[in-house]
C-alpha cells in the first residue's frame, strides 16, 4: 500500500503540504498519487513569482501511461521550485515526500486540507 507521511497535510487532489513555522510551505504529491500515475517522466511547475490559487490547476504531472493536472493546495506566491524534479521527474516516484518535492508557496490562505490520518483513511494509504 502507498505510504502516507504523518505530520503533513493533504488535499483531496493528492497534494501534500509541509508547514514549517511562518515560512513558505513545501508542496508535493502523495505516494498514493505517484503510484497511481506510474513512472513520471515530465513535470510542469508554476513559475517562481507567480500566484497560485487553492483548488486551481498550476501545472501537470505526466507519466508513461497518463497525465494529471497539478492542483495547488494553497493560495499564495511561488517562492521556489524544485529544479531537480524538472530534470529528473523519477524523483517524484522514488521520494515523493523528500527529494521529489515540487514547489514552495508563501501562503496567504489554505484550501481545504486533511490530516494524514484522514487522507490515508479515504485514499487507501498506509501511515
Amino acid at each position: 500500500m502507498s505510504k502516507v507521511v504523518a505530520g503533513l497535510k493533504y488535499s483531496a487532489e493528492h497534494e501534500w503540504v509541509a508547514v514549517d513555522g511562518d515560512g513558505p510551505v513545501g508542496i508535493g504529491i502523495s505516494a498514493v498519487a505517484a503510484d497511481a500515475l506510474g513512472d513520471i517522466v515530465y513535470v510542469d511547475l508554476p513559475e517562481v513569482g507567480s500566484t497560485v490559487t487553492a483548488g486551481e490547476t498550476c501545472g501537470e504531472v505526466e507519466s508513461t501511461k497518463s497525465v494529471s493536472d497539478l492542483y495547488s493546495p494553497v493560495t499564495g506566491e511561488v517562492t521556489e521550485i524544485n529544479d531537480a524534479v524538472v530534470s529528473d521527474p523519477a524523483l517524484i516516484n522514488n521520494e515523493p515526500y523528500g527529494a521529489g518535492w515540487l514547489f514552495k508557496v508563501a501562503t496567504t490562505e489554505e484550501g481545504p486540507l486533511m490530516s494524514a490520518e484522514e487522507y490515508a483513511a479515504t485514499n487507501g494509504g498506509e501511515l
Binding site: 506510474g38 513512472d39 517522466v41 508513461t64 516516484n93
Partner: peptide, 10 residues
Amino acid sequence: LKYESELAEH
C-alpha cells in the same frame, strides 16, 4: 498492468 515500474519492465 505493472509489477514495480513499467519503465523498468520496458
